[in-house]
Nucleic acid binder design. Structure first.
Lengths: 345, 345
DNA sequence: TTGTAAGCGTTATCAA
DNA sequence: TTGATAACGCTTACAA
């Protein structure tokens, strides 16, 4: 292995000079800098990561904790993971992949051993055990998703309230008056899924402001439950012409059922899906959708841990950040102006 | 930070004793072991990763290189990545996530800096640059996928030849006589895609042995190209009753087209898909499929790097392994006994 | 602008 | 069965 002293010897300087030349933490004459760079290139020197971590008190590694079995769409998760990795590199960091099959032990281990300087948690739920561990360890961390109490932590997430609002606006703009929100199964609302409530709240407020009459119906996502949901909606509000679906699994069933019921999308009924783009794109008709920025989520999370790592290294108290990323509404083929009233009575 | 000497002091022993108690590399009396364990628990000691890597010449990290844009189904890739991570933990290893947006530099960096003791490459193609880099660096490595020259390397992959053979067997067993293989676009065959040829070869040999008459047709996977492929097949061999599809993208179109052409699956035509289970499951009718074991791929790759790391640490020459994992044929609803001849003439 | 030297927290080689 | 002690390769005061 080529070491720093090898480089120093080859360049005819001291080891510290090489170190400083590399880190730029003190001025180096052009002449020496060149000699050092030359030696590094010739010898093919790469600083030893362990030694660097030991002496420098920084591993230059962040841990990324991915959910083992997730409710989120896997390709989206993968895209975030890759975005995190790429963004980390731009800060000179590498990414350690952690699953939570060790429970919270994994996080504790890498943080306490100095393996990772910081942690990014994906798919955070309202009451997430891992969050308390991180807070207790006082490790620089960023969460993707919102816990119930984000105090002392930095978080990024999609702005689901805005997503809901965009849906209401779009339907209102198209002249729909009676709309329905087909949500997740009631279990999701009862449990840790903050995003479900946030979406609904955002939708409700905007719907009210825009004078929409609306119904919220939870939906398990199976064909049968979607059928039940839809028929109840139409029984309660036969004039419903706009649908917002947040449960990805219910999208396919809903479309089939509308078709089966003689309602053409988008002529008779408009449908907006809150889901990743590829999903919206693969249905027929292609769905108007509201989608959060995926890569940006990862990048923002990295920026947040980096900020915290730097702050703590300088002995400061890191600032809590809460960043909500605005989703995009993409109009495709499943939404259109509301039909004239009573055409389906 | 709690250090080894803190533990030693608390337990009233020397630092080396604690180290040995932890590694088990020399006998320790029950009495001292207990004291040491006690101290570790009380103080909440975690060995410093960097120090361990520096002194022990092992980082206990392997790098996993994932493709940036992959041709493989993302959930499968994710499942492999997670399987690798979990399996690595069982060997006391953590996993560093690498993309190849740095080109081959990432691999070089982590190997040369001692950040990773070994590397696993996912989605390896026949002529993969990363492979030559690894060979040159002489880093313990395992490949998932087969390069053209696996000499000096360990590889795991699905046994695609067997996958092809299983398809031929299943159709032959059901009494089909004329079958068609709907493959990937011709570009895939012209390029680096060893798995495509291997599948085809396995299918062809078994088909011949079983006395099947068969046609191979490449297919780009769009609706139009699938339509063209299918009509040519039926023009050339009107009696074709069995279909094997390897191009995931062509599955949907093929099913629609058969239906549109008045052929009921599986009564009039049987279809086998070579694809991941979830994909086979989400079509209607649910598809009989041939699927490689995903998690096992990851586990095997980990076993292989570990073997090579150990061998090299002991100064030995690691043994090359080439492990092909047997795929499973799962019979679902898309295959049935061949219909009586000429029913569609 | 550069060099010297004292750690950083382990592992492993000697002795005892 | 245990204890000193010298590496391991780098960073960073402190001197010059």
């Amino acid at each position: 292995m080529v070491t720093l002293s090898d480089v120093a010897r080859h360049a005819g300087v001291s080891a510290s000079t090489v170190s400083y030349a590399l880190s730029g933490k003190r001025p180096i004459s052009d002449e020496t800098r060149r000699r050092v760079e030359r030696a590094i290139a010739v010898l093919g020197y790469h600083p030893h990561a362990g030694a660097r971590a030991l002496a420098g008190k920084r591993s230059h590694i962040i841990a990324l904790v991915v959910p083992l079995h997730t409710e989120v769409y896997v390709p989206t998760m993968m895209e975030i993971a890759i975005a995190v990795t790429v963004a980390a590199r731009e800060h000179g960091y590498d990414v350690l992949l952690l699953t939570n099959d060790e429970g919270t032990e994994g996080v504790r281990r890498v943080a306490a051993s100095g393996l990772a300087d910081g942690v990014i948690l994906m798919d955070v739920t309202l009451d997430d055990d891992r969050v308390s561990v991180l807070r207790a360890l006082d490790t620089p961390a960023a969460l993707i998703g919102l816990p119930d109490d984000p105090a002392g932590l930095s978080c990024v997430d999609n702005d689901f309230a805005l997503a809901g609002a965009l849906c209401a606006d779009h339907l209102a703009d198209l002249g729909h008056r009676d709309v329905a929100f087909v949500g997740y199964g009631s279990g999701v609302y009862r449990r840790h899924a903050g995003y479900a409530e946030r979406t609904l709240t955002g939708f409700r407020e905007r719907a009210e402001r825009r004078g929409l009459r609306f119904l919220h119906r939870p939906c398990e996502g199976t064909y049968e439950s979607t059928a039940g949901t839809l028929s109840r909606i139409l029984a309660d509000r036969p004039d419903t012409t706009g649908f917002v679906v947040q449960n990805e699994a219910a999208i396919g069933p809903l479309l089939s059922l509308l078709r089966a019921g003689g309602r053409i999308v988008p002529e008779d009924a408009s449908v907006i899906a809150i889901c990743p783009e590829p999903l919206a794109d693969q249905h027929s008709p292609r769905l108007t959708s509201v989608t959060g920025p995926t890569r940006e989520l990862g990048q923002a999370a990295v920026a947040q841990v980096m900020a915290r790592i730097t702050a703590m290294a300088e002995g400061g108290l890191p600032e809590d950040e809460l960043r909500l990323m605005a989703p995009d509404l993409v109009v495709r083929e499943s939404t259109a102006p509301a039909p004239r009233r009573n055409s389906h009575r």
